[in-house]
Amino acid sequence: MNAQPTDQETPAVQVMSCCAPAITVTLSDAEAAQLADALSLLAHPIRLRLLAILARNAGHVCVCDLEAALPVKQPTVSHHLRLLRDGGLIEGERRGQWIYYAIRQDALATVRLLIDQFFASLTPDKA
């Protein structure tokens, strides 16, 4: 005999949705693109070393000194300097036949702020 459970015998099951619409997006498409551009600009050892050299030396640093400080050839240094300049993180000033580079502190502060805001948004709110 097949015994069918009656309504009183059937246990109550509460189905919870696993995908509740309580997600808030804290990073817009434009903000994500801006942060990704900044991070990709920083995501190379030579560019990081260039920024470190420029940060440690107040004022402008001659390109010849930058080339001498790195284990790569001049075209590679020039390429990475161009990327940093095009990305707005450094500025160059021609003095005679040499170019002197310096960090743009305002641009670096903006990148730092973007990164700080992004990682702060990853921390769950304490209720």
Rank of each mutant, 00 (worst) to 15 (best):
Pro75Ser: 07
Ser28His: 06
Ala36Thr: 09
Leu41Ile: 12
Leu51Gln: 05
Ser40Ile: 11
Ala32Val: 07
Glu93Lys: 09
Leu70Arg: 06
Gly92Asp: 03
Ile90Pro: 00
Gly92Thr: 03
Thr24Asn: 13
Leu48Glu: 06
Gly59Pro: 01
Lys73Ala: 08
Leu81Glu: 06
Ala38Ser: 07
Glu31His: 07
Ala22Glu: 15
Cys18Met: 14
His60Trp: 02
Gly59Ile: 05
Pro75Phe: 04
Leu42His: 02
Gly96Met: 12
Ile46Trp: 01
Ile90Arg: 00
Leu42Ile: 04
Ala33Gly: 05
Trp98Lys: 10
Ser28Tyr: 10
Leu66Gly: 00
Ala58Pro: 01
Glu91Pro: 01
Glu31Gln: 12
Val63Trp: 08
Ala33Pro: 01
Leu27Gly: 08
Val63Leu: 04
Ile46Pro: 00
Val61Asp: 00
Tyr100Cys: 01
Gly88Ile: 00
Leu39Arg: 05
Asp37Pro: 03
Leu84His: 01
Gln74Gly: 13
Thr24Met: 06
Leu81Pro: 00
Ser17Val: 12
Val77Trp: 00
Arg94Gln: 13
Ala30Cys: 14
Ala102Pro: 01
Arg49Asn: 08
Gly87His: 02
Ile90Cys: 00
Leu50Lys: 04
Leu27Asp: 13
Arg49Met: 07
Leu84Val: 05
Pro75Gly: 07
Leu50Thr: 04
Cys64Glu: 10
Leu50Ser: 03
Val13Lys: 10
